[in-house]
Computed example of a mutant assay.
Amino acid sequence: MSLESLIAAFVTLFVIIDPVGIAPIFLALTGDRTPAGRRRVALRAVLIAAAVLILFALVGRWLLGAMGITLAAFRVAGGLLLFWISFEMVFERRQQRKSTTAERSVAEEAHDDVAAVPLAVPLLAGPGAITAVILLAAPAGSDAVRLALVVGVVLAVLAATLAVLLVAVPLDRIMGNTVRMVVTRLLGVVLAALAVQFVADGVLALAGTT
Rank of each mutant, 00 (worst) to 15 (best):
Glu4Pro: 00
Glu4Phe: 09
Ser5His: 13
Ala8Phe: 04
Ala9Asn: 12
Phe10His: 03
Thr12Val: 06
Phe14Ile: 06
Ile16His: 02
Ile16Met: 03
Ile17Gln: 04
Ile17Phe: 01
Asp18Tyr: 02
Gly21Gln: 07
Ile22Lys: 05
Phe26Thr: 10
Leu27Ile: 13
Thr30Tyr: 05
Pro35Cys: 11
Arg38Glu: 12
Val41Asn: 04
Val41Cys: 06
Ala45Tyr: 02
Leu47Ile: 14
Ala49Val: 10
Val52Thr: 13
Ile54Asp: 08
Leu55Gly: 11
Phe56His: 10
Ala57Val: 14
Val59Cys: 05
Leu63Trp: 12
Thr70Asn: 01
Thr70Lys: 00
Ala73Pro: 11
Arg75Met: 09
Val76Tyr: 12
Val76Met: 11
Gly79Lys: 04
Leu81Lys: 01
Leu82Val: 10
Phe87Pro: 00
Phe87Gly: 12
Glu88Tyr: 03
Phe91Ser: 14
Arg93Ile: 10
Gln96Asn: 02
Lys98Pro: 00
Ser99Leu: 13
Thr100Met: 13
Thr100Asn: 08
Glu103Leu: 13
Ser105Trp: 06
Val106Met: 07
His111Phe: 12
Asp113Ala: 00
Asp113Leu: 00
Ala116Trp: 05
Leu123Tyr: 07
Gly126Pro: 11
Pro127Trp: 07
Pro127Ala: 15
Thr131Asn: 11
Ile134Phe: 04
Leu135Glu: 07
Ala140Phe: 06
Asp143Gly: 05
Ala144Val: 14
Ala144Trp: 13
Ala148Val: 08
Leu149Tyr: 05
Val150Gln: 01
Gly152Ala: 06
Gly152Met: 04
Gly152Pro: 03
Gly152Ile: 09
Val153Trp: 03
Leu165Val: 12
Leu165Ser: 12
Val169Asp: 14
Pro170Ala: 15
Leu171Cys: 07
Asp172Tyr: 01
Ile174Tyr: 06
Gly176Ile: 14
Val179His: 04
Arg185Glu: 13
Arg185Val: 13
Arg185Ala: 11
Arg185Gly: 15
Val190Trp: 00
Val190Lys: 00
Leu191Arg: 05
Ala192Val: 07
Ala192Phe: 09
Ala193Gln: 03
Ala193Tyr: 06
Leu194Trp: 01
Ala195His: 06
Gln197Asp: 15
Phe198Asp: 14
Ala207Leu: 15
Gly208Ser: 13
